[in-house]
Nucleic acid binder design. Structure first.
Lengths: 340, 340
DNA sequence: CTGTTAGCGCCTTCAG
DNA sequence: CTGAAGGCGCTAACAG
């Protein structure tokens, strides 16, 4: 009692008390075979009540394999990435991996800088958001041959493995619903072009669908703050200033759509009669709104789960499919109605 | 060109090419003095174009000091912790620390289990949410003498250092505003008692304030899902089923308050005329609502910043105040109005 | 200002 | 089934 900042017990201490070599303890505790079950049990008990915790750094050095996984997402101010992370992290944690998370704020150079710093931990794998990265980073990661999972978006030529949504198709599916309701004068509020490739892909899907219906391209309004409700409000204000040019507004996510909806109503417009509003993601918020938001529900949790499983498989030498596309689900809601 | 998965260059390689000893390189790169600025520059340039990245694990072993910080929060499904984290993480990252984040879902035994696993990384410091922890964990952490920051809540007897809000006082301040408007029949919707100590503290502050005004204790409705809008909706539904017993409902956060507000209005009640609604946190959402929510804005970002700075100071041997209380700010909003 | 020596705690490899 | 030797990449502590 009263150990005064003794360093934590190591393999050596456990070995001495057990009267065996360090190697036997190491093998016993790792579950490697080559230890009689009697000694194994004795050692396990001893280790437990000594409070032995293997040193991850020493292990990483010795085994050249670190049990650290680096995960990079744009931000956490939106349930989207929080939910993806949640689904994945539990899987990895259970398997004994710790994750170091970073947020890039949609800045590819920050993503790259982080990966460089991350290299210090010799991570077992890296998880990145999206399939667009600094070219140098792509090459470097591919060259290492380590597992890399790209999340949320998919591509035909992933660095290693990707799990996500086809955002262009999702945008198109949502737009098809709106087109079928008779709308032909769309607008789009989201991040400026070039900032968020997923938003751009959805925009492209929406535009193509309207074009196919003989309508013009959606007017696009760029707003800065990705996550904020206020950004949606500002976007709608900008649109309203243009006069009644549009009959439906697509927002790049539900939060901004909500902000836009509130602003439209505050300006005296009726939704969906005077103007339709569509969001994206199908967050919980959209269901408690007085009129449920017209949106497309994304399989965020499932993406996280599948990504976690594929990553584990990959770490265990099994090669998962290079490209896994999960489907979104249209939520018709009540903020876009048939045009008279 | 075409290096085939060569292991990354180490101190040795840099040293050989520079024609100096490993120690000189080590010192040069760490900015420790005892190296002429000429050699230092030469080494720095060489290291840079070799793409040398020091191995964090080896450093941790050699220096007995890991540059990893463990951070535990209840969840990320709510801007609250995401914003606190954001404020803190940048500070730490800039100083060269990597953070390993965990979510506990308000389960103290999970928090403890995570800390145990975390011990494998010999973290330089630990950051926990709140001041309530498994007793064994408290003792263990105190015994190590390592920096520990408790966030979001404060206590008179922190493990080491705490930075947060006085939740009881915050609840009382919000309630005082509501009492001043003439309300005397409050209800409270939040997690069941015992789940979230901060929610309990706010409830206590609200109850005490109403008691001082001669009113009875608020009826309390427990809802399970901490973050969801739907939880607030269910809470309000439960209250409505009790009949018109209350003239104001306090929700434990803005998200649930929003869900409750929508439900009340859907049930034909006018807010604030028929019933008042108060939230907590002052998230962005509350400002775009048709009537801004009556709430109390919490200094989340500031908590993160200050916590990060105090933590860095502590790591550098400076001892910050053991208890830093940051103030919230009442946002009167428009969902609680004077009683006639 | 620079180099040498001796580990940090564990794992891989090779002997018994 | 068990043990001994050597090294992972780096940094303290001590020489010069």
């Amino acid at each position: 009692m009263g150990r005064i900042r003794n360093r934590p017990p190591g393999l050596r201490e456990v070995a001495q008390r057990a009267g065996v070599s360090m190697m036997t303890v190491s093998r016993a505790l790792r579950g490697v075979d080559g230890v009689s079950s009697a000694t194994r049990a004795r050692i396990a008990a001893l280790a437990a009540d000594l409070g032995y915790v293997p040193d991850g750094h020493a292990r990483a050095l010795g085994a050249a394999d670190s049990r650290i996984i680096g995960i990079s997402v744009p931000n956490l101010f939106n349930d989207v990435f929080a939910q993806i992370l949640d689904g994945m992290r539990r899987t990895l944690e259970t398997a004994g991996y710790s994750s170091v998370v970073d947020t890039t704020d949609y800045d590819l150079s920050r993503e790259q800088a982080w990966c460089d710093r991350m290299a210090a931990w010799r991570p077992a794998a890296l998880v990145l958001t999206g399939c667009a990265h600094a070219p140098a980073l792509r090459e470097a990661l591919r060259a290492t041959g380590r597992p890399v999972v790209e999340l949320w978006d998919v591509s035909d030529d992933p660095i290693d493995v990707c799990v996500g949504l086809d955002h262009r198709a999702a945008g198109a599916a949502l737009a098809a619903h709106v087109v079928a309701l008779g709308h032909r004068r769309p607008a789009f509020v989201g991040p400026p072009e070039g900032v968020d490739p997923r938003a751009d892909a959805r925009f492209a899907g929406i535009a193509a669908t309207f074009a196919a219906a003989g309508a013009g391209a959606p007017g696009r309004v760029g707003v800065d703050d990705q996550s904020a409700f206020g950004a949606g409000a500002r976007g709608m204000t900008a649109l309203l200033a243009q006069g009644p040019r549009h009959d439906v507004v697509f927002f790049h996510n539900d939060n901004t759509a909500f902000g836009g909806l509130m602003t439209a109503e505050a300006a005296g417009l009726r939704v969906p009669e005077d103007i339709g509003i569509a969001g994206f993601n199908g967050l919980d918020l959209t269901r408690v709104m007085p009129r449920p938001l017209t949106t497309l529900k994304t399989p965020r949790r499932q993406i996280g789960l599948v990504a976690g499983q594929h990553l584990l498989a990959r770490l265990n030498g099994v090669r998962p499919p290079a490209r896994t596309v999960l489907a979104g689900r249209l939520v018709p809601g009540a903020t876009v109605a048939p045009q008279p």
